[in-house]
């Protein structure tokens, strides 16, 4: 996939999404009934989930070499990293934007100390823990040489735990969980993760054939 195609697809996706959603409701934008921050947090949470899921699924497919020959591996890695970083930034924003919000009244401790939240303590804590785990997994890439590939791989496996925690957090206390598109989103993404995991676990990397040796001079020219 060429670079231009990636850029074009991203722009088209952004434009289509923006147009579809903005056009019919633009007149309602100025009045968020004072809940703008809360709505922004919910939106950031959903998009963060989507990006972190895409990063996880992309990593799974990348490690099983399913995209080999379809997309350049280094570019796929760049996309995988960018999705993780964007998802992490969105997840952080999902929490931070709640602090000045008068609607939900969360403080720093509620949001960033696991099990300190006044609201849905355990379910909220899973969101906090998922954020920390995803951060560790994402930034571990830059410390791979320091921690070694085996540790790095185990750290990366923790992203499944983080994903499950994020999914649980979203399903249990997400205000929009019961909205049909969001319910479908959770169902589809979790099914795809399971499918990708099954592919990854059953994938057998083809063995590399030993490079063919050039025939020795004696074998090539028995007469000489």
């Amino acid at each position: 996939m060429s670079l231009r195609l990636v850029i074009a697809l991203s722009l088209v996706a952004g434009l289509v999404l923006g147009t579809i959603v903005l056009a019919p409701v633009a007149h309602r934008l100025p009045s968020a009934d004072g809940h703008g921050a809360w709505y922004a947090s919910r939106a950031a949470g959903l998009v963060a989930y989507l990006f972190l899921w895409a990063a996880l699924a992309g990593g799974l497919l990348m490690s099983s070499a399913w995209f080999d020959g379809i997309i350049n591996r280094a570019r796929l890695l760049a996309i995988h990293q960018s999705l993780s970083l964007a998802g992490l930034a969105l997840a952080l924003g999902h929490a931070l934007v709640l602090i000045p919000d008068d609607w939900t009244r969360f403080g720093l401790l509620d949001l960033f100390v696991p099990f300190a939240s006044y609201y849905a303590r355990a379910d909220a804590a899973l969101g906090t823990l998922a954020l920390y785990l995803f951060a560790i997994v994402t930034f571990s890439f830059w410390f791979r040489n320091a921690i070694g590939p085996v540790t790095w791989r185990w750290v990366h496996r923790a992203s499944f735990v983080a994903y499950l925690a994020a999914l649980w957090h979203g399903v249990r206390i997400g205000t929009d969980t019961r909205a049909l598109p969001v319910t479908l989103l959770y169902l589809l993404t979790s099914s795809l993760v399971l499918g990708s995991l099954a592919l990854r676990l059953t994938y057998v990397r083809p063995r590399r054939r030993p490079a063919a040796r050039p025939p020795s001079r004696a074998a090539a020219d028995p007469a000489g």
């Binding site: 999404l17 959603v21 903005l22 409701v25 934008l29 709505y39 919910r42 939106a43 950031a44 929009d176």
Partner: peptide, 8 residues
């Protein structure tokens, strides 16, 4: 897009 959809 998500923010607008939720706010709307």
């Amino acid at each position: 897009a998500a923010w607008v959809a939720i706010a709307a």
